[in-house]
């Protein structure tokens, strides 16, 4: 069983990591590099004359972007292991897992690990003001745990006690609130920060859908040959 989980998760996670890295390098990295020009002081918001919105940005950087590809693959293998562990457990209890249903699993993973934390702690461009890192990490993990449990209760719970608990678990992290800084001091224009958050979430949704699809596909294939 463990080998089956490992095989499905490694294949699905590694392929997804490469696709996610490509999406990030094309769509997210230019926004991040643009923000770093403000973070480093090469450009200034409200300067006279105003800074161009289309500065020259570095192209593909082998070492920096190579490391990003490596870590993207690693992170999606990690996500893949968590997703396939949940899928396999559900399959053992009678759920049908295939590529099409896998997409729904992937979107649920996106909501639990990307979207729910981002709802109160949006993806940050470099240079933004932020609260204490450890406090944000604790809130991030708590939100992920609460949201994942809530989604599982919606998907597999029976009746209103389970669904009511799910709603409370999904709402609680945001009612409690994420740690935010006492004052805002980010040098990066809001236009760039907004685009960064949207792009980070969009690539995340695409990548998680692909992860779910591939995890479902490989799980079914492994089950057929086993």
């Amino acid at each position: 069983m463990f080998q089956k989980i490992l095989t499905s998760a490694l294949f699905a996670g590694f392929c997804t990591g490469l696709i996610a890295a490509a999406l990030q390098i094309v769509f997210v990295q230019p926004v991040l590099l643009h923000a770093e020009l403000y973070e480093g002081g090469e450009l200034a918001h409200f300067a006279t004359p105003p800074a161009s919105a289309h500065p020259e940005l570095p192209g593909f950087e082998p070492v920096r972007d190579g490391l990003s590809i490596l870590f993207s693959a690693l992170i999606y293998v990690g996500y893949g292991l968590m997703l396939v562990a949940c899928m396999g457990f559900a399959a053992m209890r009678g759920a049908v897992i295939d590529a099409r249903r896998g997409i729904v699993w992937g979107i649920a993973g996106f909501v639990a690990l990307h979207f729910a934390p981002a709802f109160s702690l949006p993806p940050e461009v470099p240079g933004v003001a932020a609260a204490d890192l450890v406090a944000r990490q604790v809130w991030w993990w708590g939100t992920v745990a609460a949201s994942a449990t809530g989604l599982a209760l919606i998907g597999f719970g029976r009746g209103w006690p389970a669904w009511g608990a799910a709603i409370l678990l999904l709402l609680a992290p945001h009612v409690i609130g994420a740690p935010h800084p006492d004052s805002f001091a980010g040098p990066v224009p809001p236009e760039i920060a907004a685009q960064f958050a949207a792009r980070a979430l969009g690539t995340g949704l695409a990548a998680w859908s692909i992860l779910g699809l591939l995890a479902g596909y490989f799980w079914q294939r492994e089950s057929a040959t086993a």
Binding site: Q29, L67, S68, F71, S72, L133, Q137, T203
Partner: peptide
């Protein structure tokens, strides 16, 4: 899986942070 996400996404050791920096931002980790 949780161990990998902690290591790649959250541990603040300088070498790890710098190597994973862009992916951490793009993935929305604090």
């Amino acid at each position: 899986g949780l161990g990998i996400i902690t290591l790649a996404g959250h541990v603040q050791a300088a070498a790890l942070h710098d190597a994973a920096h862009d992916v951490r931002h793009a993935t929305g980790f604090p």
